[in-house]
């Protein structure tokens, strides 16, 4: 293998560069468009490098197009989802990882299966339920919907992290007079902290990127999260692409940074059971 690798290294590098060009293509387009003035965008032939680099679009989306409102909404929904999710998933995961009860196997099975359910299946009836409960156009509605669809994955991941902690640590605390809930809070959570952070960030990202629930449950501009807010630039006849790409760039920065923090654990978690061999 090593000879093959050394011999073909230049070929591999060329291939990598070509594939990267393909994979990053829309982001190059984004960066090219966001730095142009509109007179330079809607012309034929198109240009890759802006003749006049301008940051005018950044001030425009900020001043004229409610981007701050969208950011605030996304932040509230993402933080709310993250908080509520952790509150319900951590105790459930502890129970599944450490306690003996009837139906534990089935719960594990269900957790894995539920992850695959599409929100679209329930969104038509959830809309009725939210309308009756007056949750349309509220952050609470979005937070609840996002939480429900992240519970199973979060619980699944946390169960894995809790199970990996040696029982001796917990037993020592119990002998010292710590209650079950006390050990969960004072022993298990601190030891599983890296896992907990991963799950929290994952929930945040999922809620930040969510589009379907926002599209269905939010009509008021002031309550729109970024994904839906940016979608407003897409018009029926024409789209303001310079503003869309600028907002997209700003909206992507936080999720990209967060994703890199958890990427390794996420891959391990998704493949768990199969990679450990």
């Amino acid at each position: 293998m090593s000879n093959w690798r050394t011999r073909n290294r230049p070929l591999v590098i060329v291939l990598t560069v070509v594939l990267l060009g393909l994979m990053l293509f829309p982001f190059f387009v984004m960066m090219s468009t966001m730095l142009k003035a509109s007179q330079e965008i809607y012309v034929v032939p198109a240009t890759w490098i802006p003749r006049n680099i301008t940051f005018h679009n950044f001030t425009r989306v900020w001043r004229e197009y409610h981007l701050l409102d969208y950011f605030r909404s996304s932040l509230i929904v993402a933080l709310g989802t993250m908080g509520l999710n952790i509150l319900v998933s951590v105790p459930a995961a502890y129970a599944v990882a450490r306690l003996r009860f009837f139906g534990r196997k089935s719960v594990m099975y269900l957790l894995l299966a539920i992850q695959m359910f599409s929100p679209v299946i329930v969104v038509i009836s959830l809309f009725r339920i939210f309308a009756r409960a007056q949750l349309i156009d509220t952050y609470t509605g979005l937070i609840l919907a996002n939480t429900v669809f992240t519970i199973s994955f979060a619980t699944w991941m946390m169960t894995g992290y809790f199970s990996a902690i040696p029982t001796e640590i917990e037993e020592a605390a119990r002998i010292d007079g710590c209650s079950r809930v006390g050990t969960l809070l004072r022993v298990m959570l601190p030891v599983a902290a890296p896992g907990l952070v991963t799950v929290m960030i994952y929930n945040f990202i999922t809620a930040w990127n969510e589009f379907l629930f926002a599209l269905t449950f939010i009509n008021a501009r002031s309550k729109m999260p970024l994904t839906l807010g940016i979608y407003q630039f897409v018009g029926r006849w024409s789209t303001q692409w310079e503003l869309l790409t600028t907002s997209a760039f700003l909206a992507l920065i936080p999720v990209l940074v967060l994703f890199y923090l958890i990427e390794k654990q996420l891959v391990a978690g998704l493949a768990s059971g199969a990679v450990k061999g």
Binding site: I230, V234, T239, T245, A248, L252, F259
Partner: peptide
Amino acid sequence: WASSVPISAMLWKWV
């Protein structure tokens, strides 16, 4: 993968 799917789809629409 790290990017937001709805936003990526909008970018592709422009591409």
